[in-house]
Design a protein around this nucleic acid. Structure first.
Lengths: 210, 210
DNA sequence: AGCTTTGATGACCGATCGCTAAAAAATTTC
DNA sequence: GAAATTTTTTAGCGATCGGTCATCAAAGCT
């Protein structure tokens, strides 16, 4: 019923996923439309008819990444019956597992695919930065919920915790790209989580002096 | 004595520094030779006569970055009369201060300038990854020295500590690119250093279970 | 001075960039 | 069937990519 004219010969989400893979592996700038059409198995006009432009295709690819690989994060953070500490640890471990999965490119697409951009593509950089800031915010909210629910000490600084654990999360992507194994990433998570008790103690912020 | 022929009309290190700035800001792929020649104030043939190719220019720029911005790291780690804890904290703080310096691009050039590359430029990616792995190794060696000198508990896992603190260091670059202030970065360092005592306690590696 | 050597300049190379117009193919509607 | 509609294909658009050639300019050497 939908289609008058010639039906599309490819599945939109399938080729989008292939584009996502390409962007994930090489980043936005380094992936050419020729790379994309080759990976997606379609010709340029089909790509532009279906997705509009390289930039729009990228943004849809990031959205798909968030839906597929990033979903665990939101799900874990929304879960009931766990402490904030357990939730954040699980976020780190689940993401680390994705980063180290040999079936997909190492590291996080949102962290690695647009760290730098030529003039005219600043939008890409800002788009991903927004995505990352959203993660920081989600961690902060989870800590605040932990305080409200009583599993985190009342004086804990949610902002500070979110900044710290998101920094570790972002760093894991770089380590993964540099060849770190899943065990190594998990070891880093171990270390980061070992800091939890000290960080949540009320008034845990030490003076700036070394 | 040196020069027969026409003398060079520009200072090689000055224009190299300008190229470094450009690469630092935009990364390898997103910086075109046209951008470079414009920033350096020279024409393409002069660039190629002086530096060989874009890739060689980039590697020299990274070396200059290491000499100027990265020197603090090596110096701090080599210093005598400090504990490993103090040295690593200073590495994090000094680097964070550079990342947040409004006079230079945010974050670390080595972390951000080549996170992804098109085929044919994998050398760039590997070059920077090697540089980062060198940092991890330097941190590990400093912890080992701390164990030998007695300021770190004998059972401490140097590899594990180096992996953790380098992950934080790499993550700081991403946070900085996302607009984090110097105070925010320092707060993350506070958090990371708060974990030190727990991490250096002998046999501090907990079982993998959450 | 003239010759040699080296660097700077303007013009431009083939290749690739993101993207698109025009025509052929595959469908639904009439 | 024919007309209308949408997609696919072929071919190629102007712009820019990294890099270079031929020429001119500025210095030392004799």
């Amino acid at each position: 019923m939908a289609g008058r004219g010639r039906p599309r010969s490819f599945d939109r989400e399938t080729v989008l996923r292939q584009a996502m893979r390409m962007f994930w592996e090489r980043g936005y700038e380094a992936t050419s439309t020729a790379d994309l059409t080759a990976a997606m198995g379609i010709k340029p006009p089909s790509l532009y008819a279906a997705f509009g432009s390289k930039e729009e295709l990228f943004k849809e690819a990031v959205a798909l990444y968030g839906k597929e690989e990033g979903a665990v994060t939101d799900r874990v953070l929304a879960e009931e019956g766990t402490t904030a500490c357990q939730a954040i640890e699980r976020v780190l471990r689940d993401n680390a597992a994705v980063y180290a999965d040999p079936a997909t490119p190492p590291g996080c697409m949102v962290v690695l695919a647009g760290t730098n951009c030529a003039p005219g593509n600043e939008g890409i950089q800002e788009f991903l930065a927004d995505d990352r800031r959203h993660v920081v915010g989600a961690l902060r909210e989870r800590v605040e919920r932990g305080v409200a629910e009583g599993d985190v000490a009342p004086g804990a600084d949610a902002e500070r915790l979110a900044d710290f654990y998101s920094t570790v999360l972002f760093g894991l992507s770089v380590q993964s790209r540099d060849g770190a194994s899943c065990d190594e990433l998990m070891g880093v998570v171990d270390s980061a989580m070992a800091a939890w008790d000290g960080l949540t103690r009320a008034g845990a912020r030490p003076p700036r002096a070394s």
